[in-house]
Write a protein that binds this DNA or RNA. Structure first.
Length: 431
RNA sequence: GUGGAUGUAGCUCAGCUGGUUAGAGCACUCGGUUGUGGUCCGAGAGGUCGCGGGUUCGAGCCCCGUUAUCCACCCCA
């Protein structure tokens, strides 16, 4: 239909006014929840040095970078917000007052194959807490997620959050199969993250690949995978090392979530490890209860990220919440709001002679903060009404020679149909 | 990457086994006379049928290629 170079690039979206109203609606909820939780908004450039994102743990996110070289600098569009936030924290870590509660609503880029719920650019609501070691931070973040879900109408169990702790798995493995190679833990997590998608056998194959980053034996790989199949927290606690710190933390978190009143929608799941290498402790992800969509949001604790950038050890935890999957879920559930255009007033001067008066009235109303459309072209009154209707205007001001001569405008309430004269701004009487 | 489906008006789509000037609904424009809408009525505009080849007397329809979108799988957040 249209030539290729006139189409939006594959995997990207144009936001027309209708789409944009919906997006703004969602973002407004993101921001309002963040405000209620006393988080401060930050932002960073969408383009960063490529090295900020390239970590060596076999993460696919690194292969999916939109990157380019410009004047001998290797640059990349951010695939996620956390590294940029970490960079910002690092740059001012000596003057910042912890704990930080920061959030951002950002556009992220990943070059990947598209399917339902996955585009190459998408927006994410990112909430991070820096400088808090306790699971009180995780609890606040998970509560914030439920607050958002509640606001958009998904608070009745349509979304559940799976929680696990990488530390739990790490404790067990470092005493066992990874005793000699603790470094293999991060790449191991990246592989385990795929369990749901590629299945048990494929994960065992990858873990036991002699040329891979992990290189377990077949038996070790099978043992590892069996640890992930635990869905019952008490069973996991029973199988964990005695006095396990990870179990204690999870228990503490679950108690807290009880207090926030959200625990009924939270489940323990030992297979959740997340696909990013930097997570160190508790990890979690939100998914629709029917399980028909991809993860809605996800996050976890990354206490060593700042160190890997050369900074001081700083505990941190955060999550990302994408705009695409949530919109699909809302649509499936019939919960997308009708975001119709709605302005406060339309002003119509019948003839050009009344335009100066109309302009003053518009200026006055706009100064009051109203959204006012001043009709620019000459048109039939019938047309003006119909245009006012489609613009969602509440009021229509009509200015004919008679009205302006009397220093008034005819004001019609478009809902009730009631009309009355209202005085024009004083200065107009001089005209 | 593999398989399938789709691509006809601005939008959603119809178009029987190939046959004359390609249709509908919605949207749009104008009108139903002078300054009162959302309804109704009438009229109008708008399409090289994704693109390129081929078969045929004749192609929106058949064949080949190509491109885009969607779905599934593969792959992966």
């Amino acid at each position: 239909m249209t030539s290729k170079d006139l189409q939006a690039v594959r995997g990207t979206r144009d936001f027309y006014p209708d789409d944009m109203r919906l997006r703004s609606w969602l973002f407004a909820h993101f921001r309002e929840v963040a405000r209620c939780f006393a988080f401060e908004e930050v932002d960073a450039p969408i383009v960063e040095h490529e090295e900020l994102f390239t970590r060596k743990a076999g993460e696919e996110i690194v292969d999916q970078l939109y990157h380019f070289e410009l004047h001998e600098r290797r640059l990349a569009l951010r695939p996620e917000m956390t590294p940029s936030i970490a960079r910002m924290v690092l740059a001012r870590h000596k003057q910042l007052k912890y704990p930080l509660r920061w959030f951002a609503v950002t556009q992220n880029w990943r070059y990947e194959r598209m399917t339902r719920g996955r585009k190459r650019e998408h927006f994410q609501w990112n909430m991070d807490i820096w400088g808090e070691e306790s699971v009180n931070a995780e609890a606040e973040l998970i509560a914030a997620i439920f607050s958002l879900l509640q606001r958009v109408g998904l608070g009745d169990g349509q979304v559940k959050i799976r929680v696990n702790s990488r530390a739990l798995l790490e404790e067990t493995l470092l005493e066992g199969v990874l005793k000699q190679r603790p470094d293999a833990f991060a790449p191991l997590c990246v592989i385990i993250d795929k369990l749901d998608k590629i299945g048990k056998e494929a994960v065992i194959d990858q873990l036991s690949d002699p040329n891979g980053d992990v290189g377990l034996s077949q038996a070790e790989a099978e043992e590892t995978v069996s640890l992930l199949e635990i869905k019952d927290f008490e069973e996991a606690a029973a199988r964990a090392p005695q006095d396990s710190a990870a179990i204690a933390q999870l228990r503490q978190l679950f108690d807290l979530l009880q207090g926030y009143g959200v625990m009924e929608h939270v489940v323990f799941d030992a297979s959740i490890v997340r696909g990013l290498a930097y997570y160190t402790g508790i990890v979690f992800e939100g998914f629709d209860a029917r399980g028909s969509l991809r993860a809605i949001c996800g996050g976890g604790r990354y206490n060593r990220l700042l160190e890997t950038l050369g900074g001081p050890a700083t505990p941190a935890v955060g999550f990302g919440f994408g705009d695409v999957v949530i919109a699909e879920l809302l649509q499936d559930e019939g919960l997308l709001p009708d975001c119709v255009r709605c302005i406060d007033a339309m002003i119509f001067p019948f003839e050009e002679e009344q335009r100066p008066a109309a302009a003053r009235l518009a200026t006055q109303l706009r100064a009051q903060g109203k959204s006012v459309e001043l009709v620019m072209a000459k048109k039939k009154l019938r047309r003006v009404f119909s245009d006012a209707e489609t613009s969602g205007a509440q009021e229509l001001y009509l200015l004919g020679s008679d009205e302006v001569g009397r220093g008034v405008a005819r004001l019609r309430n478009l809902q009730s149909g009631e009309e009355c004269d209202v005085p024009l701004p004083d200065s107009l009487s001089l005209d």
